[in-house]
Design a protein around this nucleic acid. Sequence first.
RNA 1: CCAUGGGUGGCAGAACGGUUUAUGCAACAGACUGUAAAUCUGUGCCAAGUAGGUUCGACUCCUACCCCAUGGA
Length: 411
Amino acid sequence: MVQFKILQKSGRSRVGKLTTPHGVIDTPNFIPVGTQATVKALSVRDLEEIGVQVVLGNTYHLMLRPGADLIEKFGGLHKFMSWDKPIMTDSGGFQVFSLGVGLESGEGKVLKEVGNEDLVKGQKVRLAKVEEKGVTFQSHLDGSKRFLGPRESIKIQHQLGADLIVAFDDHESSKHTKEEMKRSLELTERWALRSLDAYRRCHSEPKAKNLPRMRDSNNRPLMYGVVHGGTNKELRIRSARFTDENFEAIAIGGIYGKRRDLYQIVDWVVENISEEKIRHLLGIGEVEDLFNGVEKGVDLFDCVAPMRRARNGSLYISPKNSGSVKNSFTLNIRLSKYALDKKPIDHGCLCYTCGNFSRAYLNHLYRANEILFHNLATYHNVYFITNLLKKIREAIGNKQFDKLRGAFCPP
RNA sequence: CCAUGGGUGGCAGAACGGUUUAUGCAACAGACUGUAAAUCUGUGCCAAGUAGGUUCGACUCCUACCCCAUGGA
């Protein structure tokens, strides 16, 4: 059983404690994305040293490689990757739409009727065939035809043994009319119910065909329903209420637009869900957004940004080292001006990287294409964000959140 | 000294008698929000060993010289 307890509140911000089968997660908190059963460039030892409390794995990637059955045979994702703290898994819905490569690229007629999407990214047209029971897509690894729906997704997430799981959802990112968005939302709602059904079967009908047996009822994961509705207020509110009615945990998804939209959406949602339920803002994690999310009552975030940024030379710095909204609280360690810089990345940062290495050294490692760069850079960024959330929790507890926020994002 | 091959941007390396001559790397910048990302996108290089010649036009053809590589004396 997973339990969420709010310990302190300040405005809409809250400090809480999410207790899972693999330990406690203090909230608000940040969940590093570890798509393929690893947070890229970091060892589990690094994560523990940093103080990361929970990581996210991905249903889509893991089902394709190495396969959910294989991971189940190894005793689940925790044992497979040797991480005994909480794990969240994503439903795979997002990937199926964002990178499921096309099927039957010539034919659109029939597919369109069931909501087929031409997802245009760059110049490639990608098709995923969406039907009532789920999505047929093409593996990005070998082109093989695959199927993922609510039942499959929930099954896989149970096989992986995650503590926090997500209902399978449709994505309206490329739908433009309100009618299309509404149809997509309705599908998400039906899939939400199917996800719930699959979840219950995993627990109350352990012999149900094709569903994994949950040995111990204490190991029940917490399942998030996902609020969609794009930037449409009416749909977002409807989705928020629906999700609140049916789920114990609320995730906010389908956020693609501008920051202003993001904050507006969060407001609409938060105002229409129960206060005591945990709230997760899917895919969000830039510094500015963390502050605003927390202020609006979000408890958990996951994002690839800190890790990806790190690998690309974008390293977090705090305001006292000239980090600001304008530079996304980052410096670009690739720049020649750091080649002779003896300072650590972020003066005052207590992480291993900052405690031992200069900007010049990191600049050199990047330029020399050394693998160690990825580790040291990712370590710093994950530490920075993890530590930031820790400071945020403390600030909320001390009624100092506004002050802390003001130091980072002056009004 | 002889023979052969060759000298193209910072480096590597193509094509071509004709409007702004690839491409890669390096350099210089920018991007990155439920990860097909050690990725992606831009920018610049006042590119032709030297000196002549042929031609309307030469990096491309010719001559001489210089330099490099390999082989030989």
